[in-house]
């Protein structure tokens, strides 16, 4: 494989991984914040419907 082709393949794989990582942890942090809110709130927060 030429350096040019390898560079393109590696760049695409890395960008997909980094974007996927951001989406995954974004959802995890959002869910965790919702659970934290639910643990202290008197009424069930709306975000619990999306979990």
């Amino acid at each position: 494989m030429t350096a040019n082709t390898l560079g393109k393949v590696a760049a695409v794989c890395s960008i997909v991984i980094i974007i996927g990582w951001g989406v995954y942890w974004g959802v995890q942090v959002k869910d965790t914040m919702c659970l934290l809110e639910a643990s202290t709130a008197e009424e069930m927060p709306e975000c619990m419907d999306d979990l």
Binding site: T2, A3, L6, G7, A10, A11, C13, S14, I15, I17, I18, W21, Y24, W25
Partner: peptide
């Protein structure tokens, strides 16, 4: 003679760090 671009190497390093952090 067949080196890849420096920014690709750095992007791969970043992606690898992200995977193992997860």
């Amino acid at each position: 003679s067949d080196a890849v671009d420096a920014w690709v190497v750095k992007l791969v390093a970043l992606a690898n760090l992200f995977i193992w952090f997860s």
